[in-house]
Amino acid sequence: MSNPLLPLHVTDMSLDLDSRRLLSNITLTISNDGITAILGHNGAGKSLLLRALHGLINTSGGTVTWGGQSVTDARTRQQQSMVFQKPVLLRRSVERNISYVMKLPHANSEFTVAELLQLARLSNKARQPARTLSGGEQQRLAFVRALATGPSVLFLDEPTANLDPDATLWIEKLIETAAERAIKVFLVTHDIAQARRLAQEVLFIRNGRVEEHAAARQFFTHPTSTHSQSFIDGILTGSDL
């Protein structure tokens, strides 16, 4: 089954804020399914790139198209979902957080509420107020809620940044489940080991530019940029400080 939002074409995209250039002349094409990890140091522009690809922020120049449609197109946006670093949960029960999304006019999930609860291992907490869950449970709920619209593309902004290893493992299982269901996943992460485990492709961002765009295996074994090599090796360079 082909992904209707692929290929992604980004052409000469820039983002300026308060006279500062935060993303600079980004051009790339992504055609393959699977998981694309977006790596880079703090402040490199990873999360901004993710939000720009999702159409959550207006860029200053350039174009972003998904399957030939502009990112600003409503139907394009409606086929995408995002999970944030700090989960934003509605002030209602666990199951009603999911059913809220499923009731949206454009929601087209193959899952039922019960199946998503099971996927998140939260069936026994369905009626509990969502904000009383633990950090890991909240992120699992946010993740399956993002699946409730039936997205073709899933954006993950450091979804395991604040989680312990056990909670991280469960989120990674959910990421793999999403990718297995032909959902294109963009994963922003600082965790190089996680990118090695999950990603088929890597975008390495530095100073608001795409420093390297390569298959994950190639990126981790033969990076073409010295900055990529330093990042993989955990070495800080002066320009990144």
Binding site: H54, L56, A74, R77, Q78, Q80, S81, M82, F84, V88, L90, R91, R92, Y100, V101, L104, H106, T149, F155
Partner: peptide
Amino acid sequence: YQPLLGSLSVGKWAAAKTLLWD
């Protein structure tokens, strides 16, 4: 809520209703 509701493409009226309830 703005990033979440924006990501979910929730319209302005529906967003206002959601916020009032929450």
